[in-house]
Design a protein around this nucleic acid. Structure first.
Length: 599
RNA sequence: UGCCCGAUGGUGUAACGGUAGCACAAGUGACUCUGAAUCACUUUGUCAUGGUUCAAAUCCAUGUCGGGCAGCCA
């Protein structure tokens, strides 16, 4: 049997080019950093989706192309939204997507390891180096967690207060909002360093309820950039954290935690999406205000992915799960990485897609056709061809005896001669696809019709002699005669007929549940206006009982299949020996579907 | 409203002051024991107006349109 990953195609030779890689290239040329170090920092509050895949491919791609490292970091500074379930799924999805490509660039840390002090002369300074798969067996490693730096972040915050650059503020959330909107200084802005230090320590000790006090950076309340108007950097939250437990009741805000986590991990290029652009001055301000001794990371922003006929926001994806509109996070109709994987898409296809769409600062809408093309291109090269009839109609070969079986040769993959051949049984009773017979054929129809001929793939040319119907007028079977000389290699093998259709032997075929997936939404931008759920496609899933050629009894979950003339399929995780379940990954391109309605 | 960012065929992107190219999509034809794949060909574009320059998609100015931010979310 062929290796599952053999014959894969990937743009590994072409080097992607975009404005971020241009910057990195220049930094490498001027030897600005000893090592190019990126990071992928998801918040564990949901499952990863194809938009994250774009970011993963960017960050790991850069690490790969420039001989660097990309840390996986849980950006877990908000205990009320995050969960261990998401931590686990994130690791699984990242590993799946980068395996065989950039898994050797994955930056982890030894289990339980926390940052070390690098500078003892007054201001605190911490470092936590990454290890890669090359340095350390994966079982002793774990991802980075922003929450592992809570001690260090606390010390950095104290340092900021000491420098007179942060203060404890007693304003309520509403008041804070109000003051900020009107560019008004907090009445607590000028309280003494000692008092802020004392209050901050007491915040940490749990003396105050949620929302009563915050730690704020002292920057510029009149700044045109809202994020510089004395932004909050710590808030009180009496909540258990999935990673640090009940240790803390104050938690750092994103802006404070992120830049410093990058610094601690020696990140050089901190790449995020466009909505953080206005935060960049704050990112720089915090790092510069602390007077840190090592090279500072820099933030760069690119446009997040929007894809046609789907929704990408975590909130909406969560809503679809909670309201039972899909079966779960890994429902194959969803744009989540696990859903895409379950559907049968390979990591290579997803990476090629990410490569093809490029990286810019323009917020566009990517056509799903680009994704579909990447999937088809990959599957065409690797999928094993099989004959399966989705909606059967019976065909009786009247000039073949009942007990007789012919064994016919079939090519496993015309795109890969190493994939070999297999035998398919042919007998008196067959099934063909209902769509492949038309009693009253439309123009240019070249499949089977009354009195017409068609070739059965890998087998014989048959002629339809009689259409049998039941009392209600429904077609129950087609009675046909076969030209046994027309078999591949036979005397009449070269005989031309217009159509070739797929078939299975009725007696030898095995049943399978086949799940036919279509796009989840009926419009290109479901969330453009109004309620996105109004646009859910009622036909996004159809389940049929299909008849498969017998070789599919040994179907392998690692393999991909093309049911000839129909679509690409993969085994679902619910499939069992004796109870086959296939998911349709994507249909074959169908020009007939475009042609037929014209007539 | 304030601040920030962006605009190249239908869609997504390249061109780094010097021939507007690529991919997807669409269309035509060839081939075909998959109406697939493959191959060949074709259609369609620099937001607008000024300026700088021998030369502008690229630099400058103004405008138009689009997006983002204004959580004790990330």
């Amino acid at each position: 049997m062929t290796e599952p990953n053999k014959n894969a195609v990937e743009n590994t030779t072409a080097t992607p080019s975009d404005f971020i890689r241009d910057i990195v290239t220049q930094h490498v040329a001027e030897k600005r950093y000893p090592l190019i170090h990126t990071r992928f920092p998801p918040e564990p509050n949901g499952y990863l989706h194809i938009g994250h895949a774009k970011s993963i491919c960017l960050n790991f791609g850069i690490a790969r192309e420039f001989g660097g490292v990309c840390n996986l970091r849980m950006d877990d500074t908000n205990p009320t939204k995050e969960d261990i379930e998401y931590v686990e799924s994130i690791q699984e999805d990242v590993n799946w997507l980068i395996s065989g490509w950039a898994n050797d660039r994955l930056g982890l840390k030894p289990k339980g390891k926390t940052p070390e002090v690098t500078n003892t002369n007054g201001s605190p300074d911490f470092i936590l180096p990454a290890t890669t798969n090359n340095d350390q067996p994966a079982s002793n490693s774990e991802p980075f967690y922003a929450s592992d730096y809570f001690n260090q972040l606390f010390e950095y915050a104290v340092a900021l207060i000491r420098k007179g650059k942060a203060f404890v503020c007693d304003l309520t959330p509403d008041e804070t909002d109000e003051y900020r909107r009107h560019a008004k200084e907090s009445p607590f802005r000028n309280r003494s360093v000692e008092e802020s230090l004392d209050l901050f320590a007491r915040m940490k000790a749990g003396e105050f309820p949620d929302g009563t006090r915050t730690l704020r950076a002292k920057i510029d309340v009149a700044s045109p950039n809202i994020w510089l108007r004395d932004p909050l950097i710590y808030r009180i939250r009496h909540a258990e954290h999935h990673h640090t437990g009940a240790q803390w009741c104050i938690y750092p805000m994103y802006d404070f935690a992120h830049c410093l986590s990058d610094y601690i991990e020696s990140i050089t290029h901190s790449i995020c999406t466009l909505e953080f652009e206005v935060h960049r001055p704050l990112y720089d301000w915090i790092l510069e205000s602390l007077g840190l001794s090592r090279l500072l990371p820099k933030q760069y922003e690119f446009a997040r992915l929007s894809l046609g006929y789907t929704v990408m926001s975590k909130r909406k994806l969560m809503q679809l799960v909670n309201e039972g509109l899909v079966t779960g996070w890994d429902d194959p109709r969803r744009p989540t990485i696990c859903g895409i994987r379950r559907r049968g898409v390979t990591p290579e296809a997803l990476r090629n897609f990410a490569y093809n769409i490029g990286i810019t600062k323009y917020n566009g809408l990517t056509d799903v056709a680009v994704l579909e093309h990447a999937i088809r291109e990959d599957l065409n090269k690797r999928a094993l061809r099989r004959l399966v009839v989705l909606r059967p109609i019976k065909v009786v070969i009247t000039n073949l005896d009942a007990g007789r079986t012919e064994e016919l040769d079939a090519v496993n993959n015309p795109e890969d001669e190493n994939a070999g051949k297999r035998k398919i049984p042919f007998s008196r009773e067959l099934y063909i696809e209902r769509d492949d017979f038309a009693e009253v054929p439309p123009p240019k129809y070249f499949r089977l019709r009354p009195g017409g001929e068609v070739r059965l793939k890998y087998a014989f040319i048959i002629k339809c002699d009689e259409v049998v119907k039941d009392a209600a007028g429904k077609i129950t079977e087609l009675r046909c005669t076969a030209d046994f000389e027309s078999k591949s290699g036979g005397a009449n093998a070269g005989r031309k007929v217009k159509g070739t259709i797929h078939w299975v032997s009725a007696t030898h075929s095995v049943e399978a549940e086949v799940r036919l997936y279509d796009r989840l939404f009926t419009v290109p931008e479901p969330d453009a206006e109004g309620d996105f759920k109004r646009h859910i496609n009622p036909h996004s899933l159809e389940v049929v009982a299909a008849r498969c050629e017998p070789s599919l009894k040994e179907a392998d979950p690692r393999m991909r299949y093309q049911f000839e003339r129909l679509a690409y399929f993969a085994l679902d995780k619910e499939s069992m020996p004796g109870k086959l379940v296939f998911n349709r990954t994507i249909t074959l391109k169908d020009n007939w579907a475009k042609e037929a309605p014209r007539s």
